[in-house]
Amino acid sequence: MRQDRSSVRTERDEQFHDFVAGRRAALVRTARLLTAGDTHLAEDLVQAALTKLYVSWPAFRRADNPDGYVRRVLVNVLTDERRRVWRRRERPMAQLPEQPGPARDPATGPADDALRQALRDLPPRMRAAVVFRYFHELGVEETADALGCSVGTVKSQTARALDKLRTALRPPGGAAPHGAASHSVVLRQGVSS
């Protein structure tokens, strides 16, 4: 019987298949944070990132730091996605439509509308810095590598992000005195801003 060439699985296919099976769920989690809880955009990001990874699979396999390679791909895709916004496919509007959030999707975590809004209010790369520093608990150097920027930029971006998050996530009536640090956002022990 004649075999369809496209049906032959290559070594790359096998390796990539195993990678996706083992890492896809974690990538989706990261993407959900990078997109401030937009589950549809997160899935798009993961698909686009995986596609890029497949295309550059030999380079990924040769990378000294494969995890760092994946993070850079995710950030690049996120940046591409943001830049795509320049090109409007739909008419602009006065207010963004409600998007399905975690509360409406059982596959995601519990509703945290305040956090979602706070993350949405951060510029994408600042948000990514927060995700890598305080969710993945990467060092400043690794975060800088993922974002393709300097260590100093990571420090300043995360400091500004934390200020914004503290303000946004301050509990009602919990306004901190002027100049005093709010404790509504605390970092894990050993992770400094």
Binding site: A25, A107, D112, V130
Partner: peptide, 10 residues
Amino acid sequence: LDQFAGSPAH
């Protein structure tokens, strides 16, 4: 953040 990221199915 961990809670917010949810638990997507494998």
